[in-house]
Design a protein around this nucleic acid. Structure first.
Length: 442
DNA sequence: TTTTGAGTTGTTCGA
DNA sequence: GTCGAACAACTCAAA
C-alpha cells in the first residue's frame, strides 16, 4: 500500500457507482482526481459537446471541493508526469473501449501502472460471445445472451471514500472552460443533474413504449448525454427498471451491442461493417449536403430535425432515422458525411452508437435495414408528428400552417414565405436509391 | 454437420 | 379506408 493514487476520469464523470474509485481507495488513502483535455479526443466534437463536457467537469470539481486537476495535453505525457509529481504508484481508470481510447491507454500503460476497473457499460464489450467463441452480429440473439449474462448491482461509492489530494499550485492546472454556447439550449450538466433528470423521468417510464417514437412529445428519457460522459452509469438505470420496462432496457442494450461491435471491429468506425457496400455509388454534392445541414431541404420533418440539432445539440431518435435515410437514400450522399456532422453537433455524440446507427440506415452495418426500406419523409412526419407541433417548433416559416398540413407545404394554396420548395422528388430518388443498391448485389 | 427459424425502427400496390 | 402481400435473398444462431 502506498500513500497516494491517481483517479484519471475520462468518460465517467461521476462519483457514485464508480468501481475505479473503489479500486483506488483500496490502494491508497489519498487520491488525486485528474482529467486530461486531449485535443485528439475533442477534435471531432463541436462547441456543444465541448461545452457540456466543461459543465460536467465543473460539477465534478465542485463535488471534489475544487480539487479536480484539469491539464491540457497528450495523456501519454501528462498522466505519467502527474503521477510522478504526486508520488502516486498507480493510476486508476474505467476502461475506455473505443478505438482511440484503447490505443491511448496502451501507450500510457507503458509509462505508469494503469489499473482498469469497470467500463461505461453494464456488460463490458467483448464479454458476450456465442457458444463458438465468436461475437454476435445480430442484435436479437445478442440481446438474449446479454440478459442471460446479467450485471452487478451498482457499487456504493462517493466522495467520502478517500481523501482528495489538493492539486493547488500544480503548474499546468487549468480551470474549466465555458459550459454554454450562444443560442444553444444545453441540458444541465453533471452527476446530480443526471440523477435528478432520471428520477423525474422514471415516473413516466410506463409511457415509453407508446410515446418514444413521437417527435412532438417528450416521450424519451434524454439520458443520452449523461450516459455519454458517464454522469450516470447504465447499471444504475438498469437496477431501477422493472419487468415491464423491457422496451427501455432493450434500448440500453442497443448501446451495449454497438459498443461490442466496435470493440471487435474497431475499423468500422470509419469503414463499412459489410465491405460489399464499399462499391455503392454515392454522389458528392456539396450544395445538397449544405441544404441538409442547415435544414433547408423543403421536407418539413427533415428540416425540423436538422434545425433541432443545431439549436439543442440533440435530435429526437425517430427524427435521426428520418434525416439519415433522407441523406443516404434521397440525396445519395455518403453516410459518413452525415455521421461526421452528427458527431460535431450532438451533445450525446457517441462513436459506436453514431457510426453504427448510420450504417444501419445505409444498409452496410450489422443487422442492417433491408435496402428497400426507404423512409418516406412525408408519411413519417404525418405518423410521428401528427399535429405538426414538432415542425412548427423548429421551422418558423411554417408557424402559421395549421395541424398536420404542415408536412406537405407544397400542397398549400399559397406557398409559405421563405420556406424552400422540395430539394428533390422523393419518389424519383427512392427509385434511384433502389437501383443503386440493386446494382451492387449483381 | 445439417437444418430450421428468424431477422428494430418501412413503403407501396392492389384487392 | 383497410388489409395483406411483395419487396430479395441472405446470413446468422442455435438446436
Amino acid at each position: 500500500m502506498t500513500d497516494s493514487a491517481v483517479l484519471w476520469f475520462r468518460r465517467d464523470l461521476r462519483l457514485g457507482d464508480l468501481p475505479a474509485l473503489l479500486a483506488a481507495s483500496a490502494r491508497a488513502p489519498r487520491v488525486l482526481g485528474l482529467f486530461v483535455l486531449d485535443d485528439a479526443l475533442l477534435r471531432p466534437a463541436g462547441p456543444v459537446r465541448t461545452a457540456f463536457l466543461h459543465g460536467c467537469l465543473a460539477a465534478l470539481n465542485e463535488q471534489l471541493d475544487g480539487r479536480l486537476l484539469i491539464v491540457k495535453g497528450r495523456p501519454d505525457e501528462v498522466v505519467p508526469r502527474v503521477a510522478r509529481e504526486f508520488g502516486a504508484s498507480s493510476v486508476h481508470i474505467s476502461s475506455d473501449t473505443g478505438p482511440y481510447g484503447r490505443e491511448r491507454d496502451l501507450l500510457v500503460s507503458s509509462e505508469v501502472e494503469l489499473v482498469a476497473t469497470g467500463s461505461p457499460y453494464a456488460v463490458a464489450p467483448g464479454r458476450v460471445l456465442k457458444d463458438d467463441g465468436t461475437p454476435y452480429k445480430v442484435f436479437t440473439p445478442f440481446h438474449r445472451a446479454w440478459e442471460r449474462h446479467g450485471w452487478r448491482t451498482p457499487a456504493e461509492t462517493g466522495a467520502d471514500l478517500v481523501e482528495w489530494i489538493d492539486p493547488q499550485g500544480f503548474a499546468d492546472r487549468l480551470s474549466t472552460g465555458s459550459s454554454t454556447v450562444d443560442g444553444v439550449n444545453l441540458p444541465e450538466p453533471g452527476e446530480q443533474a443526471a440523477v435528478t433528470a432520471w428520477e423525474r423521468y422514471r415516473e413516466r417510464l410506463g409511457d415509453y413504449p407508446k410515446t418514444r417514437d413521437r417527435a412532438d412529445l417528450s416521450g424519451t428519457s434524454r439520458m443520452s448525454a449523461y450516459l455519454r460522459w458517464g454522469c450516470v452509469h447504465p447499471r444504475t438505470l438498469l437496477a431501477e427498471l422493472e419487468e415491464r420496462d423491457e422496451v427501455y432496457r432493450k434500448e440500453l442494450c442497443w448501446r451495449e451491442f454497438y459498443a461490442d461491435v466496435l470493440w471487435h471491429r474497431p475499423e468500422t468506425a470509419r469503414r463499412n461493417f459489410d465491405r460489399r457496400f464499399d462499391n455503392i455509388e454515392y454522389d458528392q454534392d456539396e450544395d445538397r449536403f449544405a441544404a441538409w445541414q442547415q435544414g433547408r431541404t423543403g421536407y418539413p420533418i427533415v428540416d425540423a430535425g436538422m434545425r433541432q440539432l443545431l439549436a439543442e445539440g440533440w435530435m429526437h431518435n425517430r427524427v435521426r432515422m428520418i434525416v439519415a435515410s433522407f441523406l443516404v437514400k434521397d440525396l445519395h450522399l455518403p453516410w459518413w458525411w452525415g455521421a461526421r456532422h452528427f458527431m460535431r453537433h450532438l451533445v450525446d455524440g457517441d462513436l459506436a452508437s453514431n457510426q453504427h446507427g448510420w450504417q444501419w440506415t445505409a444498409g452496410s452495418g450489422t443487422d442492417a435495414a433491408p435496402y428497400f426500406r426507404v423512409f418516406n419523409p412525408t408519411s413519417q412526419g404525418e405518423k410521428f408528428d401528427p399535429d405538426g407541433d414538432y415542425v412548427r417548433r423548429y421551422v418558423p416559416e411554417l408557424r402559421d400552417v395549421p395541424g398536420g398540413k404542415v408536412h406537405q407545404p407544397w400542397k398549400l394554396p399559397v406557398a409559405p414565405a421563405g420556406y424552400p420548395a422540395p430539394l428533390v422528388d422523393h419518389a424519383e430518388e427512392r427509385a434511384l436509391a433502389l437501383a443503386r443498391y440493386g446494382a451492387i448485389k449483381a
